[in-house]
């Protein structure tokens, strides 16, 4: 990330991702669905109650007995607790709410839960990260561990830290999820996509969050 992008990310007035955070703030307070409850009806003031939440996701979901990501939890609240239509993965509403919640953890260190029920999914994510995939036969690790800092054509290769999601990507001209980022890399590898919210996607996220433990959340990050 160049100095220009970094400056844009740090300045809330210049950071285009902050528009989604603002939209998320309004959505947080708006009553919806059969319950006519807002997120705030249950969770109160997000800057207090949501502080640190994104830093410890994905987490183990008791209801489904499986790991769940932050967006998945929001979908669950919307559908089951508010009685509203479940928001679309990667749709505008969900991105806004996710970035609003994650923004409440900005500058907090990533602290993955020490929950043994997450261990197998995390290991599955680690395995996926180092598996060669696609027609080009690359693994994530080959680029993001072995060649981070190098250039793939014009693109500098980052270390694949998931600290800033959802991010505003200048190339997308939009906010996007970590899973959208996975999709970009996988399509570059000519590999099968990993769909948002799938067990593979959550496993990869669990692994990447663990790998980034201690790094600070920067949502909404800005990327070229």
């Amino acid at each position: 990330m160049g100095p220009d992008t970094q400056a844009m990310q740090k300045d809330d007035l210049a950071n285009p991702g902050m528009l989604s955070v603002l939209e998320g703030d309004a959505l947080w307070k708006a009553p919806v669905g059969a319950s006519q409850k807002s997120c705030a009806s249950c969770h109160g003031d997000a800057p207090q109650t949501m502080k640190g939440v994104a830093a410890r996701y994905p987490a183990f979901d008791e209801a489904t007995q499986a790991p769940i990501d932050l967006a998945g939890r929001i979908i669950q609240c919307r559908a089951e607790r508010q009685g509203a239509a479940p928001p679309q993965r990667e749709g505008r509403e969900l991105l806004a709410l996710t970035s609003y919640v994650a923004h409440q953890s900005r500058d907090l260190a990533i602290a993955p839960p020490q929950d043994s029920r997450l261990a197998s999914a995390r290991a599955q994510g680690a395995a996926l990260y180092s598996t060669r995939m696609g027609q080009l036969n690359f693994s994530c690790a080959q680029c993001h561990d072995d060649n981070a800092g190098g250039h793939l054509g014009a693109a500098p290769i980052p270390q694949a830290h998931p600290t800033g999601y959802p991010i505003y990507r200048l190339e997308w001209q939009a906010l996007g999820s970590l899973q959208r980022r996975f999709r970009n890399c996988l399509s570059g590898m000519r590999a099968e996509p990993i769909s948002a919210g799938s067990a593979d996607a959550i496993a990869l996220e669990l692994f990447l969050m663990d790998r980034a433990a201690g790094m600070k959340i920067e949502t909404p990050a800005v990327r070229p």
Binding site: T131, M133, G134, Q135, N137, L186, R190, E192
Partner: peptide, 13 residues
């Protein structure tokens, strides 16, 4: 090769 995208399957580069 693993997990090759459908439109590239069984094709050489």
């Amino acid at each position: 090769l693993e997990r090759v995208a459908a439109n590239y399957k069984a094709k050489t580069l």
